[in-house]
Design a protein around this nucleic acid. Structure first.
Lengths: 246, 246
DNA sequence: CGAATAGTGTCTATAAGACAGTATATC
DNA sequence: GATATACTGTCTTATAGACACTATTCG
């Protein structure tokens, strides 16, 4: 076993990745927001081969020089498209196969992000000439996205819906101050189902994750208390799911 | 934009992955089983650089010729180490960074598998001279695994513990026929906590996921009914977590 | 019979759903 | 006052935990 007599240093010095057949590896992000009472996803129109002209999830290759971790790559992509640096970002799954990209064996690590649409500034670069918010339902029903992005979007959507049943994730889709009704509406939009008002308020308030800001949202009716999240960044997990109407 | 005037065919013909800096991409599997009333994980001792001689999770590179999907790569690795083809296999997360592997930027897609220890035959190849079941707690407390495998194991363990609170996953660690007490014990070992017997039996039986086989497990006491899972492969999700003692 | 493990009856506790009622703003 | 939305009281329901009880086997 001559190989094993090499020191690790010698081994590493003689190692060259270009001698191996490796897959392409990229990161794609499903950026969700709520617009016009619907869950929307950010899509970019591809300005380059392959799948030129098709709508796709924003994403791209890892920059071996600039990115130190996968999460970094995801944050960088998020920043490039939305101008926003921090928001809720969660890794969902990786998709890899011989034929998902015509260039060859490829793996993509999919993330989803939640952002408040009001705070962002859509931007685009030379690789994607158009950027747009599109309702998730519309995409899933009638848009053929580039690569396997329909499947990726579906998985991210499932993950989001699943987690909304037992976490406080939707706070990440709202501005800093919001009312309980606004929060409930956000839950309902994601779950695509109504939630009983009293149950919802009890659940959220008992969890002790919000604090009153002291301000009120006024309108042509009784003003509502405004809240903010108590520990920004922490996501509360309930031990029981929201179940919806019986 | 001359680039965009290329046809996709021409683009693909001129595309060569070796012109790009790409990360290494691999798959690692945390294979869990229950042995001697403890959750164990399968480790291999590395027989090659890097991290030669260190214990590691089984894994390896994608074989661009043989593997059609990531899941395929995972199943192949599982088969190579255990001789088992099908068992419960779930993708957990991908870990990627500049420094997790001394050879350079690398990404690994981590899976966990659940198998019945009784049904497997440990095997090893020239790349790993030793294969062993080791209690998860022991590894986490006192073993420095290769690369970032401690972190990967930890994440897989967390995921397993988390899911066991609201699914029927542990059935995948048992032989085809088992008693409710055996199932409960498996849950308890994973959760590292006791479960109230009546609650457990009610929960499992009410979920209607098991069927009596008609056989009994005998011993030096009252015989116990043997059950098998009703829909092999489907994992039941409860809408409430097991909560443990109050 | 005793020991051991299987399996049940039933009370309490917790948190969700249902739904009607009250509160407070604007116009 | 009418309308609209905020917010609460309280009953029912579902399911988990506690714990004592009964059942069935072996030796």
């Amino acid at each position: 076993m001559a190989k094993n007599q090499l020191s690790e240093r010698d081994y590493l010095q003689s190692y060259n990745i270009h001698n191996y057949d490796v897959p392409l590896t990229s990161v794609d992000i499903t950026i969700f927001t709520v617009l016009d009472n619907a869950l929307n996803v950010l899509l970019v129109k591809r300005a380059q081969h392959p799948a030129l002209g098709k709508w796709a999830l924003p994403g791209g290759f890892i920059d071996l020089k600039k990115d130190r971790t996968l999460e970094h790559t995801a944050q960088r992509k998020l920043k490039e498209k939305t101008g926003v640096r921090t928001s809720y970002l969660e890794q969902v799954a990786s998709f890899g196969s011989k034929q998902r990209d015509p260039r060859g064996w490829s793996v993509t690590v999919a993330y989803f992000a939640l952002i408040d649409a009001a705070e962002i500034q859509l931007t685009h670069d030379e690789r994607s000439e158009e950027v747009a918010w599109v309702p998730v339902k519309k995409v899933l029903n009638s848009t053929k996205l580039a690569f396997d992005h329909n499947a990726i979007l579906e998985r991210c959507y499932e993950r989001l819906q699943g987690k909304v049943q037992y976490t406080s994730l939707p706070v990440n889709l709202l501005p800093e101050e919001f009312t309980l009704s606004e929060l409930q509406s956000t839950f309902e939009i994601i779950l695509d189902s109504t939630i009983e008002k009293k149950s919802f308020r009890r659940r959220i308030l008992d969890a002790d994750i919000l604090q009153e800001t002291g301000n009120m949202r006024t309108g042509s009716n009784r003003p509502a208390k405004l809240y903010r999240v108590q520990n920004q960044g922490e996501n509360f997990m309930f031990s029981r799911n929201i179940e919806g109407p019986r």
